[in-house]
């Protein structure tokens, strides 16, 4: 995985403390074009703090974030959003009583052209619906009508709408924070296929998940976090699931090497662990 390209999104030495608790302890992160990077770790490993820093939900105490090589500072989620980074949350962040098109365009409504839009600030409902329908069709999300309230959809379809919204507005990066945690097996499958289609469209994805089989199916690279540090970056080709879990849960280096002997050396062992 020697990538000569510049990462789209990159973090160096991110640190965040809450009193005595060190949530992030000098964490690095890279996301390259067209890839899905999964971030895994036990509870309290710092993965959600890392994601919050990358999506502007919190500001790190130390370290820097670079977008296309340029240093950026996200003070709010809005800053990250206007830089082209969209986030999908696990708890179905949609407005259930609004229809699909309204949810896709929520906070970014298009106004009519001409005096109706300028003076009366009238919404361009028809063109937004058309636009939303085309977008969902491209992502192969089958719903009957853009005018139905999101609450009438299944959980998987609802999350599909949330992912579609992120994919529509994310110009650089889509972050998916446990997007399938609230879903059943079949619906999870639908969302996973959808994430793959989002990547195929050229949008790199950061995926946070507890579900190892899905992580190994989706991710090009897997960043493993433990105790606020990045302990390894592995790939599904070089590591097995049990190995990744061993690194995540802090198996000793000896145990790790035992495990690795059977599978060959890891592609990348991070410096922090040396």
């Amino acid at each position: 995985m020697s990538e000569p390209q510049q990462p789209i999104l990159e973090a160096r030495g991110l640190a965040k403390r809450y009193g005595q608790v060190v949530a992030l302890d000098g964490v690095d992160f890279e996301l390259y074009p067209d890839e899905i990077v999964a971030v895994i770790g036990d509870n309290g490993a710092g993965k959600s703090t890392l994601i919050k820093a990358l999506s502007g939900a919190l500001q790190p105490d130390e370290g820097e974030i670079r977008l296309d090589g340029k240093r950026v500072r996200f003070r709010t989620p809005g800053d990250a959003r206007s830089a082209g980074i969209e986030t999908v949350y696990q708890d179905l962040a949609v407005a259930p009583s609004l229809d699909i098109a309204s949810n896709i365009f929520l906070g970014r409504e298009a106004r009519r052209r001409g005096p109706l839009g300028l003076a009366l600030r009238m919404l361009a409902k028809r063109s937004m619906r058309r636009d939303a329908a085309r977008h969902l069709q491209e992502l192969k999300i089958g719903v009957q009508s853009m005018g139905q309230p999101v609450e009438n959809l299944s959980g998987g379809q609802r999350q599909g709408v949330a992912v579609a919204r992120a994919a529509k507005w994310a110009e650089r990066v889509a972050i998916m924070d446990e997007p399938t945690a609230a879903l059943g097996v079949k619906e999870t499958r639908q969302v996973i296929d959808l994430i793959l289609r989002v990547r195929e469209r050229g949008l790199p994805v950061i995926l946070i998940s507890h579900d190892m089989p899905h992580v190994f199916e989706l991710a090009d690279r897997i960043q493993i976090m433990r105790l606020g540090k990045r302990v390894a970056v592995v790939t599904p080709q070089t590591h097995t699931m049990p190995e990744a879990v061993a690194i995540m849960t802090g198996a000793t280096r000896g145990e790790l090497e035992q495990a690795l002997i059977k599978e060959g050396p890891p592609a990348e062992l991070p410096e922090e662990d040396a």
């Binding site: 989620p77 949350y89 962040a93 407005a95 609004l98 929520l106 970014r108 009238m122 919404l123």
Partner: peptide, 22 residues
């Protein structure tokens, strides 16, 4: 017919989601 109206509904419906969409 206006974005303000949509935002009123969204704020009452799911304030957290509304905030997260900006």
């Amino acid at each position: 017919q206006t974005a303000w109206g949509r935002h009123v509904y969204a704020t009452g419906d799911n304030p957290e989601a509304a905030r997260l969409t900006g």
